[in-house]
Simulated scan of single mutants.
Amino acid sequence: MVFGGPAFDPKKIPDLAGKVILITGANGGLGYESLLHLAPHNPAKIYLCARSQAKYDAAMKGITAAVPNAASMVKYLELDLTSLASVKSAAQTFLNENSRLDILMNNAGIMATPAALTKDGYEIQFGTNHMGHFLLTKLLLPTLQSTASATPDADVRIINLTSDGHSLAPRNAGFVPDAVRTDMQDYSTWTRYGQSKLANILFTRELARRHPDITSVAIHPGGVATNLANSFTDSHRFLSLLLVPVLKAMTAKPSVGALNQTWACVAPVQGRKVVGGGSEKEIKSGGYYVPVAKPDVGSKFANDAELARKLWEWSEEDLERQGY
């Protein structure tokens, strides 16, 4: 992905005083870099979600070196998206400590993993990339909504990380509900990945429809040199020897890759009295954006309103079946 679109300068992000931010997968990669872009602008708190205290501690060494006052601002929140119980516990911990949430960045994800199941029996990529974030968002929605209604100029956002890989979802359906509670080993790893990334866009579309008081957007970060592809390279070592040097030459540094999702946190909102900063380009709730700040149509399935409704209802019903 060649980075283009309007210029965005994270140094020109407006004052974020009082805002509470939660970023999943913020101990590394794009989430970490997004945190570094946002932290210098005075938010009240940023919750760094990671799977362990050790990952948080390691991340904080770099964060405090870059942003000296981050130690009082950045909070640890244990979160394992492969476990619904962990998601529920993380949400409850957050709610016990906060009465507001201004920005929820559903950033964490996995890509091109071997066939496997989450702890709750979902195909590993769908369960991690969609179901974990769906439950987290569901549990935090009342607080997001109350924050949105607190003042006339409230600015509450949900940023869902997706990928142009959503176009690799199953060709005949996009979403295969009868299969996602298996490891889907008869599907290629990229088809499974595509389904999970399509789910991120469909979830965003339906969030925007059901909750117009919140700005919800889906973001493709572009080709970025993170550790997201480690699973693929570990499983295909010979092929990776040929491909990795080429891919590295085509990818951006994580600090650049995080610009699109950071822009989405602060851009002026179309149709609302939200000023934003760092870019004059407006953002529209329900939109899908490629780097940087460029609206994109996405695949046929990504624009299927009925499929978005179907995915939402299936996700809610399956969580309720398990007591969530």
Rank of each mutant, 00 (worst) to 15 (best):
P43F: 10
P43A: 02
A44P: 00
K45M: 05
I46V: 10
L48T: 13
L48Q: 09
L48C: 04
L48S: 04
C49D: 00
C49H: 05
C49N: 03
A50D: 01
R51T: 15
R51G: 03
R51F: 13
S52C: 09
S52G: 04
Q53C: 07
A54N: 12
A54G: 14
A54H: 15
A54M: 07
K55A: 15
K55E: 12
Y56C: 05
Y56G: 01
D57I: 04
A58T: 07
A58E: 07
A59N: 10
A59Q: 01
A59C: 04
M60V: 07
M60Q: 01
K61Q: 13
G62T: 12
G62L: 05
G62I: 05
G62M: 09
G62F: 12
I63R: 09
I63G: 04
I63A: 04
T64M: 01
A65I: 06
A65V: 14
A66I: 09
V67D: 01
V67G: 06
V67E: 03
V67M: 03
V67F: 13
P68R: 13
P68F: 04
P68V: 11
N69H: 14
N69A: 15
N69L: 12
N69T: 13
A70E: 03
A70Y: 05
A70C: 02
A71Y: 11
M73D: 05
V74G: 05
V74D: 00
K75N: 08
K75F: 11
Y76T: 08
Y76E: 05
L77W: 14
E78F: 05
L79E: 00
L79C: 01
L79R: 03
L79W: 06
D80V: 13
D80T: 09
D80W: 04
D80H: 14
D80R: 01
L81Y: 07
L81G: 07
T82C: 10
T82N: 13
L84W: 11
A85Q: 09
A85S: 11
A85F: 12
V87I: 13
V87T: 15
V87S: 00
K88R: 13
K88A: 11
K88W: 10
K88N: 13
K88Y: 12
S89M: 08
S89W: 08
S89F: 10
A90Q: 03
A90K: 02
A91K: 02
A91R: 05
Q92G: 07
Q92T: 15
T93P: 05
F94E: 01
L95K: 06
L95W: 07
N96G: 14
N96Y: 09
N96F: 02
N96Q: 10
N96K: 09
N98K: 14
S99I: 08
D102R: 02
D102H: 11
I103K: 01
